[in-house]
Nucleic acid binder design. Sequence first.
DNA 1: TTCTTGACCTTGAGCTACTCGAGGCCGGTA
DNA 2: TACCGGCCTCGAGTAGCTCAAGGTCAAGAA
Lengths: 117, 117
Amino acid sequence: MRISEAASRSGLKIDTIRYYEAEGLIPNVARGSDGQRRFSTENVDWLTLLYWLRETGMPMKVMHQFAALYAQGDETIPDRKEILLNHSRLLAKRRHDLDRCDEILSKKLEIYEAYLR
Amino acid sequence: MRISEAASRSGLKIDTIRYYEAEGLIPNVARGSDGQRRFSTENVDWLTLLYWLRETGMPMKVMHQFAALYAQGDETIPDRKEILLNHSRLLAKRRHDLDRCDEILSKKLEIYEAYLR
DNA sequence: TTCTTGACCTTGAGCTACTCGAGGCCGGTA
DNA sequence: TACCGGCCTCGAGTAGCTCAAGGTCAAGAA
């Protein structure tokens, strides 16, 4: 498929996909005889994973490491597993932050209510 | 108190506080006779709120609106309430994103496990 | 008293991770 | 044949900090 479909399936924007490719985060993007990118379903699965990792706060440095491991093949799976487990810890921290912010918001909203009453 | 204490209490970095002040996000920051900033507890409460809003993804544009309303005084409380309620909706969306990412991670980790077994 | 240290100051440059605009190619349609 | 939409590259622009350079000042050590 072409880039626009890859974008709508993965969640990434077209520009971001091109940027990621230029950064070396996406291995093996084929080109048609017209010079346009063609994305395999494996490409799209990878992009989707990148989208969610980034969206939930994985730093670009780690994305680069992760992509480099992915490009090296299956023998790097233990390392990649480690990265995903770390990210999962980050998710827990983010969830905690959301809870904390929720608390602060409700306190603030209570104060507003008291004022408005 | 001085900037370093305001930083450690609010969560913001020193540089970020100065940047926010320059941007007009922090009203009424006093200065001592030495020219250094002095933060009141109200200042610090405000900074703490800004920290959490930003940390959980409120865009700077909205922060600017929110700060402008705050600077205008109590009659803007209904507007500020609206902004905080909107943000609270954003938090829900983020939480949903975290859940989705968790799902994807566990699927991925399962695949890794299957490979490693 | 002089020296050093540390916290603060301003200004301006640099950085990250995109995001957008300009200008161009190509295949399909009216 | 003229246009249109989707793709391309390259380079500049943006958001939100972040840091480096160079300076002031107060307090404590030598």
